Amino acid sequence: MASITVRTELERIQAQNIDITNFETTLKGFQDSFKMRVGKARNQYEVAIKTIDTAIANLEKVKEAMRLWTQQLDVADRGLDEVTIRKLTKGNPTMTAHFESLVLEATEPTN
């Protein structure tokens, strides 16, 4: 009878050890899986940050190009005010004569 009681107690303790081992194995598996997913999430986060930084850098380049474009338009606009027929025909006798004839035609009375 004592032997049966000892054997039953031993089986109960072995079953508990198996339960503890299974629990530890399951917990370890969960921890490993969780760590792996956190690592993947961290990598995706870093890729997203790098992508955002690249987009910002590209937008800064576009912004600078547009600023320079505006400067060129301003220079062209200021230069346009300085353009006159005299400046355009200077050193070009053909064009000077042509414009002078046009001026004469415009001032002649029409019948």
Rank of each mutant, 00 (worst) to 15 (best):
Q16A: 13
D74R: 11
V83C: 01
D77N: 14
I52R: 06
V75C: 01
T94W: 08
F99Y: 13
L102E: 14
R42M: 04
E105F: 15
D77R: 12
K61A: 04
L27Y: 02
K35Q: 04
T25G: 01
S101G: 14
L80V: 09
L88V: 14
V75N: 13
T5I: 08
T107Q: 10
P93Q: 11
T107I: 12
T8V: 04
W69C: 14
I52K: 08
S101Q: 12
F34K: 12
N22D: 14
I52L: 10
N111M: 09
N22C: 10
L10Y: 04
L88T: 01
V62I: 13
T107R: 13
N17T: 08
F30T: 09
Q72M: 09
Q14E: 08
N111A: 12
N17S: 07
I18N: 01
V103R: 15
L104C: 15
A2Q: 15
E11L: 12
F30M: 12
I13T: 01
T8S: 12
M36E: 09
I18K: 09
E46L: 12
Q16W: 04
T8A: 12
G91Y: 02
T5E: 10
V62T: 08
N92W: 04
E24A: 00
E24P: 00
A65Q: 14
T21L: 04
V75S: 02
A65W: 12
I49Q: 07
I13W: 02
E9T: 05
T107L: 14
R12I: 01
E24Y: 00
A55E: 11
N22Y: 08
N17K: 10
R78I: 15
E82N: 10
I18P: 00
E24R: 04
A15T: 01
A41D: 02
F34Y: 09
